[in-house]
Design a protein around this nucleic acid. Structure first.
Lengths: 325, 325
DNA sequence: AATTGTATGTCAACCGGTTGATATAAAATA
DNA sequence: TATTTTATATCAACCGGTTGACATACAATT
């Protein structure tokens, strides 16, 4: 049967209070007693039941992560780094892939709250979900504007949009298109499109932003991208809002007979590890994904500890010069 | 303050036993009482404390996943699909990225056991870690041979290795190299290399297997791959044990002046979603990743329910014809 | 009218670990 | 010698929800 603290106490010849003191390194304890208790634990293969302690301590050492999916280079790298840093800081991670579905996100949120997570790091849909406000839970957001209570970590999206657009213009592109997700999704990533429009205006160029929804499947995306090429046959430059879509744009252009970058210059956004290995030719705006994770974890731990934290933290981007511009 | 079942009972004007009966849909209950209780829960924004119930029920509805990392197309897709199916089956997922480090894996295992997970799905290091045996926890393994107690799900690695090698031979390659991870890692993936050797022998060709460790960083991998090109200058075909490494081989070959596939034919293994988008030109042996996840979740749930399950389940692979052969 | 079913309450114990209050005894210190 | 510190035990309550046993009252059925 499952070994309990009483069993350890009996074998060690001490009280369960003493075993608890050894487990928690609390109170006066002789070296002899400590050794006897450890020997008993090892002998019985005792594994303390964290659930009992969580109930009493009102602290689970669990953190919930809600992101669209880890089946994606950007989110995969982000979640991997978040998990690593949280674990190194004594937390375990409960993960929810919400697929940007508000109902699914709300279900996850309720489940995580019910499981008494100590905090949340989220980067998913942000349609008004009341539990974010009512639960009094420390939350940190990545690339999503939730409300003024919830700190946001993001890359310098505006600067990234600016760099991308200027790079295309300086490389001779004259008809530059931008793609973005749905604008009702409140995210700092919208600043990429804003920067694109600003830079275009300052060069007396007409901006065009094409919506490609993150959640569309590959086939739908390919159809929409084909339509984009039909709709803008003069397009000779494109700033794509993420690398996966940039890759699709690239493949579609090649199929249509375009030469990259002679006929069409392409800039993406993300620069994740996997993308770097699988498609290093793609010129892209590189987000500091590992740094975003590091800052998010530090901010969450500060929130859990009740410290003052900044409302927004914007981390610098870089240009990765591939061969698509 | 935090709302408890007593608070809901007081507002609804019933006993906490009645609230518990409503929560669990147990015993006789009138519609009026059910409504009163639900209204009170909503009014107070009551969120049941799962920890208390977990302690009593000795069931957490949590499943632990231990994989090397989700910052990788194959594991990212696998973990995303596992999480989705587990959540749809009423479980939440605690994730541990072990980076193939046995000590880290053991730490994760202990933590997950302590957190009373109902089961585990693992696909990481498998060096003898005693807790897999002693904890009496339902475990399912993906692509790892643990012991005869633990069921294994994998793709048909032998068939994959056979298909890859035959494809290279049938395309005219005469000097074919294979890469694999460290052979002391007990994994069905070693059958890829076995199949390669068997097919080569049957064509009177000398097999060469080059070890590339999954955990080496990009720089070390690139160095080792460069050395491989120096050591086998006559190489005109290569079967790479995973797509990320295949991409690195491709880039290195191009840098060295090879034309793909004229001078060097390349076959990878995995065929993950992200790889398909970012490098569709890569010819690869496509694992049924989503099916592996589906079977693993079904097997784990069967184990949790004490049902008889098969010791090994091998799922069919396919060839993805890119342009690298 | 008697019996059975429905509805809800009371009570207390439990799940496993934590911990404060208090007690006792021995060792160390002033 | 008196006081303080160290070491360990006992006891019981707690954390929040679950649930069985039993009670009471009313409604439905035989």
């Amino acid at each position: 049967m499952v070994v309990k603290i009483d069993d350890v106490a009996r074998l060690a010849g001490v009280s369960k209070t003493t075993v608890s003191r050894v487990l928690n390194n609390r109170g006066y304890l002789s070296d002899t007693t400590i050794k006897k208790v450890h020997d008993a634990m090892e002998s019985l293969n005792y594994q303390p039941n964290a659930v009992a302690r969580q109930l009493f301590k009102k602290e689970t050492k669990l953190v919930g992560l809600i992101f669209p999916t880890v089946d994606n280079p950007f989110f995969g790298q982000l979640v991997a780094e978040l998990e690593k840093r949280l674990f190194d800081s004594g937390f375990k991670v409960l993960i929810g892939n919400s697929m940007n579905d508000p109902e699914k996100e709300e279900t996850y949120l309720k489940e995580l709250i019910s499981n008494q997570v100590d905090g949340l790091i989220v980067g998913a849909q942000n349609r008004d979900i009341s539990e974010y406000h009512t639960s009094n839970l420390p939350v940190v957001s990545i690339d999503r504007n939730m409300n003024e209570d919830i700190p946001v970590i993001s890359s310098d999206n505006y600067q990234g949009g600016k760099l991308a657009t200027e790079l295309l213009i300086n490389s001779g592109a004259k008809h530059i298109i931008n793609t973005n997700g749905p604008v009702n999704l409140k995210t700092p990533a919208n600043r990429r499109t804003q920067a694109y429009a600003d830079v275009m205006a300052s060069h007396n160029m007409v901006p065009h932003t094409y919506v490609i929804d993150f959640n569309w499947d590959i086939n739908k995306k390919e159809r929409i991208i084909n339509e984009m090429f039909k709709e803008y046959p003069e397009m000779d430059g494109i700033f794509v809002t993420n690398d996966m879509d940039a890759a699709l744009v690239w493949r579609t252009a090649v199929k249509l007979g375009y030469k990259i970058p002679q006929d069409l210059k392409i800039v993406g956004y993300d620069g994740a590890n996997s993308t770097r290995v699988l498609l290093p030719e793609l010129t892209t705006i590189e987000q500091p994904i590992d740094e975003i994770a590091q800052v998010a974890v530090k901010t969450l731990i500060d929130r859990i500890q009740g410290k003052e934290i900044p409302a927004e933290q914007i981390l610098p981007v870089k240009v990765w010069k591939g061969q698509s511009v």
